[in-house]
Design a protein around this nucleic acid. Structure first.
Lengths: 334, 334
DNA sequence: GCTTGTTCTGAAAGCGGTTACAAGAGGAGG
DNA sequence: CCTCCTCTTGTAACCGCTTTCAGAACAAGC
């Protein structure tokens, strides 16, 4: 593999000049520039990124941490990040598969050692305080899926309260008054916010909140299924269910069907996220969409803007959930 | 950020000694070793990976190229790769979103510049010859999802012919004799192999191959839907369909339903891949599973073994498809 | 006690770039 | 024609680590 020195010899200039031509921020005589370029082409020269990073103390990499690479949520986000990072000639360092506070911290440490120029994290178990401490530590950090006051200009998030409101409101608009909710683990802010949205929508419609109509799920199919079974066993006469995410909704669907009821004829069902499977469920799931890819792109732009002292003002940080109507919700005959 | 020099001064040894205790392949007196370790701990020292890479000419990174990060196929594969790569203390450099020969080559070039220690590629448009040429170029390369003779010990793949056979055979075993097939683009080897498996199963069962029963899809929902419509329009009296992947099957399901028919009562349907949505379709899709995560892990192990002059013999390179029975296939009353 | 052999250790030479600094070239102004 | 500037260029000092090489230290053998 050719080095800058070989290029400089072939082009009959100094290595400094080669470097200047390649980096282009210092003017170089046209004749020399061409000579260098010709030598570069002839040798197929490619700068050694290690040497460059050592000298500049920049890696050209953006670190990304998500909980699970293969989940439909995060993979959309990463896709979004990747598209803008790579368009900037930078690369992605990914780390995943870390559930729990300790493992998350370890993942951050792991990436930090690789010295990315910026970090984008979507962490669940880590506290706000830790996040604040880390991002103060010299490495520009973008926080995905959470809003932290102290890091306001570095947070990309979606208003989950509004999303929960939207979903519940949709059911109310269709005539439903008795609405159950399969929540996520209360440890997750997303889950709490969606629940809060649910409660506010009920409140605004003058429907009183009934604790018995809410069960705790786990954002997974099993939890949705189990939650729905408990709900059905209580026999409270609800006509619709808002599940805190699509997977829970899928589980709920199974339980409803196993109970001999039909969606949406007997029970209307609405999910959250709009992942791929929502379209494929039968009936196709009405749900609340989170723009994963766009949020990933925004996160990447924010991270990059922190590097180039650029235009972080223009990056959108808050995203709105939007209702996607399919066929799992029926209007109630009244 | 502390450097090795500061550590050496604090520990009152030379930088060489610090390096030796950190890398641990050269013996160091116990007293000095402890002194160094203490200094490292006190300073919170972390080696600079750029300098290390420059000196050793190893990056500690594994490059991965896939077509689409957010697809359920590839994200499973990446998950698998990531788990073993990170367990080895190495990291992942990912690049995606490259459809077409030219962009694929560009992605390879992009990653090559970052000098990963090995490369794992799942490429569709690139020819075998190019792959052979690239992998001869000094960078250990593992090829996913394809079998190339010249690279036999560097290929991880699944026997798609067997998978196609399995699917078709399953329908035959259930009494079906008139079986349609929604294929993938013939440019893709996977698609051709599955079709070949379909034909062989028919042949083995003494059923003659009817070209009119096969339509070309695109591995996506739209293609599956359109293909199914064409098939139905031909009115050939088939009782079952083998779709070349689950998404096509999902599309086909839509078309069947739109035509006023039911699955599996009127038409049995079988897919391929066993991605998440297969379980959630209604009826749940009988399909052929590809072990994505395991294949990713195998690819990573193969890549790593190429570095450590290790035990590549033990890595499994060929994987078998397995039939997953759900409820989209009915036995034919005869 | 001296030689020989075996470990350990430190000095210093890379690895391949970037960039501060100084010097040369050329043009403008007096 | 000389001086002063400005614009390019080359030299060389770094960036922080690994590793070779040679010397130091120590144990063993005679």
């Amino acid at each position: 593999m050719a080095t800058i020195k070989e290029v400089s010899q072939l082009a009959k200039v100094s290595v400094a000049t080669v470097s200047r031509v390649l980096n282009g921020r210092v003017p170089v005589t046209e004749a020399k520039r061409e000579s260098v370029l010709a030598a570069v082409a002839q040798l197929g020269y490619q700068p050694n990124v290690f040497a460059r990073s050592l000298a500049t103390n920049r890696s050209g990499g953006i670190g990304v941490i998500v909980n699970e690479l293969s989940s439909p949520y995060y993979s959309g986000v990463i896709q979004g990040i990747e598209s803008v990072v790579e368009a900037q000639g930078m690369h992605l360092l990914v780390s995943s598969g870390h559930a729990g506070r300790h493992l998350e911290a370890q993942a951050v440490e792991f990436l930090r050692q690789r010295r990315p120029d910026a970090l984008i994290v979507q962490l669940e178990a880590t506290s706000d305080a830790d996040l604040i401490a880390w991002s103060g530590h010299g490495l520009p950090t973008v926080v995905l899926g959470r809003y932290i006051d102290a890091l306001a200009d570095r947070c990309i998030h979606l208003d989950n309260l509004k999303g929960g409101y939207l979903a519940t409101r949709h059911l109310i608009d269709r005539g439903h008054r008795c609405i159950a909710h399969i929540a996520g683990k209360p440890a997750l802010k997303d889950a709490r916010d969606r629940l809060a949205g649910y409660r506010r929508a009920l409140h605004d419609a003058g429907i009183s909140y009934d604790e018995a109509l809410v069960v705790e799920g786990d954002f997974m199919e099993e939890g949705g299924q189990a939650g729905m079974q408990r709900l059905l066993a209580r026999d409270l006469g609800f006509t619709s269910v808002f599940a805190a995410n699509d997977q829970s909704a899928a589980g709920a669907l199974l339980a409803i069907r196993a109970h001999g009821l039909r969606v949406p004829d007997d029970i209307s069902l609405i999910g959250y996220d709009d992942v791929l499977l929502a379209r494929y469920l039968f009936p196709a799931l009405t749900t609340v969409r989170q723009p994963f890819v766009e949020m990933g792109q925004a996160a990447a732009m924010l991270a990059l803007s922190a590097l180039s002292a650029g235009d972080s003002k223009e990056v959108r940080r808050q995203f709105d959930p939007v209702l996607i109507e399919r066929t799992s919700v029926a209007a109630l005959q009244s």
